[in-house]
Amino acid sequence: MSTRARGAAKTAAIGGVVRVSFDGRPLEASPGQSVGAALTSQGITAWRATRKGERPRGLFCGIGVCFDCLLTVDGSANQRACLVEVREGMEIEGSCREDPSEETGGRA
């Protein structure tokens, strides 16, 4: 049960390519890649700004410890880019979450 999301790449990959979007732009990733790897390999190395200094942030620890690489995946805010595997059709959004009350559904 709990592995079903991670197994999705198996069926979604078309010709070895997973199509996702980042802030509305289409992006191609490889099956099995993490969102962080997919972005970084496209030259996108920062996708979040810090609250105080608005400093850019991307991958740091790479293993789910530092929470620096947070982004929004299919409407779920504050997911760790280093841990989420790309899925066909995934909508990825950078920056901090705006308003959690508007996040309650409809999107997926």
Partner: peptide, 24 residues
């Protein structure tokens, strides 16, 4: 050290092992 492009050494290794590509 808080600039993008700075990573934990283990994070670089994890990136390579899990994705089969390099972060830079």
């Amino acid at each position: 050290w808080d600039l993008p492009g700075v990573m934990a050494a283990g994070g670089i290794q994890a990136f390579i092992k899990a994705n089969g590509i390099l972060p830079g």
